[in-house]
Amino acid sequence: MIPHRLLASLLLVAAPAVSAFDFKSVGAAPVILYDTPSPKGAKMYVAPQGMPLQVVSRYGDWVKVRDANGELAWTEAKGLSVRRNVVVRTPGAKVFAGPEESAQVLMTADKGVVLELVDPTALTWIRVRHRDGIDGYVRSNDVWGL
């Protein structure tokens, strides 16, 4: 018989492998991130439009989210959009015309640049679109939000 603590530990380790992460993006207007699921909580910071956030848990109309820096906070679910964006985490990340290093470089993105995720099923090369209309591919390890 497996002890309960060991079983719980095994389930926690296995859980990420069987379920995809739930990512949303900040909607049309910036949202306030709080330390508790209430507007009476301390305001931590304002997340700008389009910023990707990982939804960690839900509590009524509120969601607990993780940002690209790993910070946890609460915000109202209504302020988030199902539209998927990613944020560049590697300074000077290159966006290529095709899913390969030998493809033409269309742009170089600074750390923190938000890109729209065009194909959320891709693994190694992610198809993205910049707000200026540039559509290309970036390596998945150069962005956060997948």
Rank of each mutant, 00 (worst) to 15 (best):
Q104S: 08
G98V: 03
L7M: 13
D132N: 15
M44A: 09
A68P: 00
A122E: 11
Q49I: 03
P3M: 06
M1C: 07
P91E: 10
P3A: 09
L12T: 10
E100I: 03
E100K: 15
L117C: 05
S57V: 11
D22N: 15
V118N: 03
L53A: 07
V18M: 12
A103F: 04
R66M: 14
A29Y: 10
V113H: 05
L117K: 01
D110I: 00
G41D: 06
L53D: 02
R66L: 10
S140G: 15
L117V: 05
E101H: 06
D35Y: 06
G41R: 02
P99N: 10
W62L: 11
R83G: 06
V113R: 10
A77F: 13
L115N: 02
T124G: 10
R66N: 07
L33K: 01
V18P: 01
G98P: 03
K40P: 00
R139V: 03
Y45I: 09
G60F: 09
I32T: 14
P99W: 04
A42S: 13
P120H: 11
V65M: 08
M1P: 03
L7A: 13
W74I: 07
V118L: 10
A73N: 04
A15M: 13
F21G: 15
N141P: 00
H4D: 14
L33P: 00
G145W: 04
A68L: 02
F23R: 06
K64L: 14
E101C: 01
R84M: 12
K78M: 07
D119M: 05
R58D: 08
R5Q: 11
L10A: 09
I134A: 09
V105T: 13
P48Q: 13
D135Y: 01
G92C: 11
K111W: 01
V118I: 15
G27M: 02
V114W: 00
M51F: 13
P52A: 06
T75N: 07
A77G: 04
E71P: 00
V46N: 11
L7F: 12
S140L: 02
V128M: 05
A47C: 07
L146C: 06
A15V: 05
V46C: 06
A8R: 11
A47P: 01
E100T: 12
A77M: 13
K94P: 01
K78Y: 12
D142K: 07
L33M: 11
V46T: 15
V114S: 04
V88S: 01
L6C: 09
V31S: 06
A109I: 02
D132W: 03
N69A: 15
G92N: 08
S102N: 12
T121H: 09
D135I: 02
